[in-house]
Each structure stands twice: as C-alpha cells, then as structure tokens.
C-alpha cells in the first residue's frame, strides 16, 4: 500500500450511528494529521467509544466515510485481503488490560501470531521482531515468557501496545487506554506512548474522559457531547480557553484547589435543562 506522507493519517466524514431511536454518533467529521495526536474527549454516552470502534471496523456506521492514509476503507472489512489491509492501517488499544488479552496465550506468542499473520516469515525473524517490539515497550525476557495473569495491569497494557504496533499501523486508536491504571503506572504508559510517537511514523487517536491526560498526549482535541462534536481545536488552546459551555463544564469538573463541586452541579443541570428545552421546542415545531 502506498501512503502519501503529505496526506492526513485519518479523515473521517459524516460518521453516524444510531441504535434504535438513539443517535450514538451524530455526523462526526475530523482530520487527524500524519504523525499527529488527536484527543477525543467526552463522557459516557458521548459516542467516543462507538466512534473508535467504527474506525477499526468493529462497528458498522450508518453513514460516513473513513479514509486512512488517503485510502477509503469499507465499513467492516470482508475477506482476508481487506482485513489485513485495515489492520495495517489502524490498530487499537482497549481500556481494560485484564480482558483484552487471551488468558491462554503467552506474551511473546501473542505478538508473534500478529507478526506471522501480517507476513513476517521465518521462525527466527518472527521471534527477533517480537522480542524487539516487547523490548521497546519495556517488557523483559521474564515478562515475554509470561501468561497475562502473571502480569500487572500496566505490563498487560504494554503487551497490548506491542501487539498493536506489530502490523506497523498508520493510526493507533487508544480507547481509554490508561484509565484503568494506577496513577504511577499511568505516567509510565503515557511516557511510553510519547516515546513511541517520537520514534515511529504513527498517529494517535486518543479517546479519553481525562482532560489532563489528553492535554499531555495530544496536540489537538475534539469534544463530543451526546454524539456530536461541540468544540475542536488546538488542545492547549481549547483547554485553556474553552469556548463551548460543555467544554467549560468538563474543565470545571476536574478537582483542583478552591474547587466548588456544588457550582458544577448547578451548571450541569442548567445545561441539560437548556438542551431538553431546545429539543422539546424542536419537536414541537
């Protein structure tokens, strides 16, 4: 596959997904530039995880297109060639490191099987490449031989990252990838993600509810509320001077010195009242 280095890593146009009467993702469009990092911020029900799952082909959008490295991809890949192409375009790291690894597969094998599927040949080459990847994410020989249950949450997440890097994807989707980790471990993984992006030609789509973490990883940010984009822009800028009331509410909700939780509650209620009124007016018209 030829990838034009100038074209964006990921272009999403009018992505929409409804479940029954509920619109989970509502006409979401964005561009992730090559080698960039875009944060997708929102709460539960914001559609951020559904968006991530549609990008990797786990969920079928009702409408919209996904282009990765300038190439358009089917909603859900069919057939071996399409599957492999999609996997080499985009990979994903999931939230819960305790569930995202097959409990019966040893760490090194779980990387090796991905390498073999994607055309690395020769037992020795596969082994060497797997060891190299696992070294890169900071897992030593002892951990490489281990079963997932013998590892801590942080180590498992490192395995998941190594496995996602194995097909050398253009885009890595990280869906709340550090949310389940202890603070001291979270910092290690965030540093690892930083190092990986410095060393490789890879772009991140970083889905998270944690604004400080997004600010740390991403240059750009997209704020989702109830399936729709409410604000986007330079991460530092948006988080320092939020324009949309919802972004302001999210920011104010982060505990800090002199924090007044009661005021946030009032703001949130005021906002959801406003939305409800708007929708009911819309329905009346």
């Amino acid at each position: 596959m030829t990838t034009d280095p100038q074209s964006p890593a990921l272009e999403v146009e009018g992505l929409t997904r409804t479940y029954g009467g509920l619109t989970a993702v509502d006409d979401v469009s964005f561009v992730l530039r090559a080698h960039g990092a875009l944060g997708v911020v929102g709460e539960s029900g914001s559609g951020k995880s559904t968006t991530a799952r549609m990008l990797v082909g786990l969920e079928r959008p009702d409408a919209g297109t996904v282009r990765i490295g300038g190439t358009a991809y089917d909603a859900v890949p069919r057939g071996r060639a399409a599957r492999l192409a999609r996997a080499r375009a985009v990979q994903m790291v999931f939230q819960d490191p305790y569930l995202s690894l097959d409990p019966r597969v040893r760490v090194r094998d779980s990387v090796e099987e991905v390498l073999r599927l994607h055309g690395t040949e020769g037992a020795r080459t596969v082994r060497a490449r797997a060891v190299e990847l696992l070294d890169q994410v900071g897992l030593g020989p002892r951990e490489q031989e281990a079963l997932p249950r013998e590892l801590s949450g942080g180590q498992r997440q490192r395995v998941a990252i190594a496995r996602a890097l194995a097909p050398e994807p253009d885009v890595l989707v990280l869906d709340e990838a550090v949310s389940a980790l202890d603070v001291s471990i979270q910092a290690q993984i965030l540093n690892l993600l930083r190092d990986i992006r410095a060393e490789r030609q890879i772009a991140y789509l970083f889905v998270s509810h944690d604004l400080a973490v997004v600010r740390h990883v991403c240059e750009e940010v997209l704020v989702l509320n109830r399936g729709a984009v409410v604000e986007r822009g330079d991460a530092a800028e948006v988080l320092a001077h939020p324009a949309h009331p919802y972004t302001r509410l999210l920011l104010a909700s982060v505990p800090h010195q002199g924090w007044d939780p009661a005021a946030i509650g009032r703001a949130r209620r005021a906002m959801s009242n406003a939305t409800t009124t708007k929708t009911s007016q819309g329905a009346a018209q």
Binding site: L99, L117, R163
Partner: peptide, 13 residues
Amino acid sequence: RTYVSAYQVGGFS
C-alpha cells in the same frame, strides 16, 4: 470479551 475484538482488529479471521 475484549480479546476477541482485539484479534478482529488485528486482522484475524
């Protein structure tokens, strides 16, 4: 289980 999704994303049949 998420590991099944992980394999699907990895391109496995």
